[in-house]
Design a binder for these strands. Structure first.
Lengths: 228, 228
DNA sequence: TTAGACAAGATAATCGATTTTTTAACCTAC
DNA sequence: GTAGGTTAAAAAATCGATTATCTTGTCTAA
């Protein structure tokens, strides 16, 4: 086969449409706390910032509103949702229920490929942590680790909800700077979770997951309270 | 006060923006089965059908995609999601977990205003059924009843997920024509649910809710299997 | 025949400009 | 001073047209 002129290529292109690109970037920035909660978005400024036209930008904003990372009010644009203690409690509580459920099911269903993925994800996460990266890459790997952990739970909708809750939770967790002490503790738990998962100890794994979410919750709460 | 020239009025107008109007209509039509699963949407045809311009229509489509009632593929538009036995099972299973949880919490939290709302919602639903309405109104009241039942569960996110699951579930349930026999049975359960809720019998209520969802699931499954 | 190339038509995505609505500032009458 | 009203500016929503991409049918060469 002659490959002098690769037909379509773009095998790992930076995604197709302007709309999807700005959606990804906005989502990252909203979750990462680069907007202040309650703020009204200045669409023209966003247009410049993300270097897109009005139409793709508005389409991205609409998607984010349906996803819950923005609030849309008829005729008066888009806002970043407010933060509240009540909502943080709600999100954490839902994470407890849903990730616990998902983890138990994943441990029941996961095959050996899953075990390998899990070890790999945990290892990548640990290395990124050692590297003391600026954080963005650690966040990506952290998300990926938790995603992998529950991936074989067997429910597409459960995974979808969990992902949504993570994004919401991270709006609180990522309000402030890193807290090295507790972070170490949480990192330790990641590895323990892998071990328990490999041992197929669903009960212990769920208890540890509960504790993990509890500790994360305390971090998020502290940051929320210290925030303003 | 002189009311010769009512200034702004529109106190209960048919919603503000073209985008939100077409979103509501499309959502209703998608849930009600007026599109065939897997179908690719012809945007120009929709523009005519819903009498809107391209921009508000696309914004609505984007929101519906983020919500899960449409699938968006880069550069090739929007499709109605396929139906599958696996997904129906998933949705039903998630409904069991989440509505059960919500009902228990609602029974723990609900006040006397809730009791009144619940009785009212159940009564309206029963009357609509007697009227043998074309169905659209019954559907609205049915949704409203289930929403009321779990409303005071205390979790905004749980309610949000349940609503999303209902929309998805209804894509299956509303595939075919009504089934009067089983419908009667399900209607009966609505009233029993109210009774158990008023008695604050969380355990029995949850069991009945499980059964209710199971029966609905069987209806939906049958319709899915008979469908094509 | 059939895989690949090509062109024409259809559709999706985006842009630039217009229309509509809200917001803010100012004014006036009580 | 303050409620109500007017208007100018700003912002949101929408439109009409353009650009980019995909799809389909046809043709050619092996």
């Amino acid at each position: 086969m002659n490959n002098s002129l690769p037909k379509v290529a773009t095998p790992v292109g930076p995604a197709g449409t302007a709309s999807s690109r700005v959606f990804d970037n906005l989502r990252k920035d909203l979750v990462g706390g680069r907007f202040v909660a309650g703020e009204k978005l200045a669409i023209n400024a966003l247009k410049e910032h993300y270097q897109v036209g009005l139409s793709p930008l508005r389409e991205a904003l609409n998607k984010l509103a349906a996803y819950g990372l923005l609030v849309q009010e008829n005729q008066r644009g888009f806002r970043v949702p407010k933060l509240s203690r009540e909502e943080l409690d709600d999100i954490a509580h839902m994470r407890l229920e849903m990730e616990g459920m998902a983890l138990e099911r994943a441990i029941a269903n996961g095959d050996s490929l899953w075990e390998a993925d899990l070890l790999a994800a945990a290892h990548r996460l640990k290395r990124a942590d050692i590297t003391l990266d600026k954080g963005e890459e650690w966040e990506r790997l952290h998300t990926q680790f938790h995603r992998t952990l529950v991936a074989p739970c067997g429910s597409v909708w459960l995974l979808r909800f969990i992902e949504q809750l993570h994004d919401q939770f991270d709006r609180y967790r990522r309000l402030g700077p890193k807290m090295p002490t507790i972070r170490q503790e949480l990192d330790e738990q990641h590895h323990q979770l892998v071990e328990l998962a490999l041992q197929r100890d669903a009960k212990a794994a769920r208890e540890l997951m509960d504790d993990h979410i509890h500790k994360s919750y305390e971090v998020a709460l502290k940051r929320y309270q210290e925030h303003a």
